[in-house]
Design a protein around this nucleic acid. Structure first.
Length: 103
DNA sequence: ATATTGACGGGCA
DNA sequence: GTGCCCGCCAATA
């Protein structure tokens, strides 16, 4: 099966363990295109595959998606809290604690 | 092929 | 630490 831009993103996001998070930029970098962070976010937004834990992906400031595709940012937050991810405030996760370094 | 859009990142105030 | 501007990429309202 040929791997399109979006499909590669799903493969990577699926590897994120519960309780951990990563950023759009890191996924883009893993694709070999560090400048495509934006396109990454778009791909995840358009493809709400439930098998993909897209709620574990946040932006560089640790902020959750403003227009999350399944219940809004509040829903994304709830899923993360359930996995043990700590929040620094209403919309930002504690990146320092949960960000995956070798990814 | 061109223009518009959007779950973004870096750099600077 | 946060917020704004600009640049980048892929999909297409």
């Amino acid at each position: 099966m040929e791997q399109g831009f979006s499909e590669r993103i799903y493969q990577i996001v699926k590897q994120i363990p519960a309780g951990k998070v990563t950023t759009y930029g890191q996924i883009a970098a893993k694709l070999g295109k560090p400048k495509a962070a934006r396109a990454v976010g778009n791909a995840l937004h358009v493809n709400p595959y439930k098998s993909v834990p897209c709620h574990r992906v946040v932006n560089r400031k640790g902020r959750v998606a403003t227009n999350f595709s399944d219940g809004g940012w509040q829903e994304q937050k709830r899923k993360l809290l359930k996995e043990g991810v700590r929040f620094r405030n209403r919309m930002c996760v504690d990146l320092e604690k949960h960000r995956i370094l070798n990814f």
